[in-house]
Write a protein that binds this DNA or RNA. Structure first.
Lengths: 221, 221
DNA sequence: TCTCAGCGTGAAGAAGCTGTGAAGCTCGCA
DNA sequence: TGCGAGCTTCACAGCTTCTTCACGCTGAGA
């Protein structure tokens, strides 16, 4: 699942974009101002950034320039300005696309797909913790050179734990990510899946530790 | 120096584009019709393609689709049509950008730079995995010396699996690549085509393994 | 020692997914 | 118009995975 960062000062627009992106399965974070946008980008490591040009304070182009100093993340510019010079400038600084408001939602989503697709097929997103490697693109996990055969739920569970390896993840956080949009409480089933996962991890230097009353923590040697 | 291929039926437009591109230092080749465009692409191996949608005969979208079967070359669509549905379709099939005529020349050049910035073209018209060879240019597949007689859908399916041979490809990824720009859900039919493909592969050291709830994996000996 | 909340574990039914044959549909072609 | 190849849809059996339940264990607190 991809993470998107919206940097736009208009709340209306942020809400619209959030709805659009979430309907596509994106995980969304927002910033209403340039400086904060850069912080969010550094913290959340989004897979794609939607950047408004007309920001107060630190302008959109300036944000883009600073972002490009340390990140290759695909950036789509949103702007009311339809002047060619502005577009060219943004694209030259390192934007991946430039869409003028108002825009069609389907086109926006399609262009988002394109700029992420273009990132290069060789780059496979993966999380590593000790000897454990979780390959998000191929839905595969392995310890050392040995592949783990996991069911979809077990994989999602391991992913959450590995993302925060070494730190406690609360049951609430786990349940929210593994069973999104669930109304009934699956924390009963969580125990069962933790059990299965532990068996499959075996005794190979990766273990799941319970923190009573709080949640679980993934430990590696 | 980059090579650019222009596929457009209007001579006026071709001349304009050629001037523009050559002023930027591109080496330019042209085609006035879709079929010829594909031949030129295979022969000259351009670094970027400018494709007009309104081609007579083989339409622009069809050209794009066929090109994408064996090449990752960046493609910029030029069109007089400004309808969102058309744009979305083109982008989903594999276009890298979509510019409506009339366009600003500086913007066009900037967008050309962008789409070349990221991707290294795949100029390998065949994929090999174990005893299996998939020839993308000629639409042929063979195991050992024995040719497989495949339908277009089966070929596309085998192509996706072979590109990631040994690794899981999710149903989502498969569907996106085999049925690009499809709105209805063909994952029902996916099972059927997998079934056909398995029968044609037979027992010759190449098999398709299901990973329940996730996708499929091509295994070779 | 008793009680109780939280956790681990096995088992079984429910729910969902896959393989497969067959029927219906579309489209190009003669 | 009829034909055939290929694609899609449907139904259903068999299998995998998920959920639920029951029960035992442990450690903290009274």
């Amino acid at each position: 699942m991809s993470k998107a960062l919206i940097i736009d000062d208009e709340q209306q627009m942020r809400r619209l974009l959030r709805m659009l992106l979430e309907s596509r399965g994106y995980e969304v974070c927002e910033a209403d101002e340039g400086q904060r946008g850069l912080q969010e980008a550094a913290f959340h490591r989004p897979d794609v950034v939607l950047l408004d040009l007309g920001l107060p304070g630190l302008g959109g182009l300036e944000v883009l320039k600073r972002l490009r100093e340390w990140s290759d993340v695909p950036v789509l510019i949103l702007s009311v300005r339809d002047q060619e010079a502005t577009k060219v400038q943004a694209l030259e600084i390192g934007a991946d696309d430039y869409v003028t408001k108002p825009f069609g939602s389907a086109e926006l989503l399609a262009r988002l797909d394109v700029i992420q697709r273009r990132r290069g097929p060789r780059h496979t997103p993966e999380i590593i913790a000790g000897a454990l490697k979780v390959d998000l693109l191929h839905h595969e996990a392995q310890i050392g050179d040995e592949a783990l055969k996991l069911t979809p739920t077990e994989f999602a569970l391991l992913k959450v734990l590995t993302e925060h390896a070494g730190r406690i993840v609360t049951q609430n956080q786990i349940v929210k990510q593994v069973w999104p949009g669930q109304s009934s409480d699956p924390s009963e089933g969580l125990r069962v899946h933790i059990n299965h996962l532990r068996k499959k991890l075996g005794d190979r230097g990766v273990r799941i530790v319970n923190e009573p009353g709080i949640g679980y923590r993934l430990e590696t040697e």
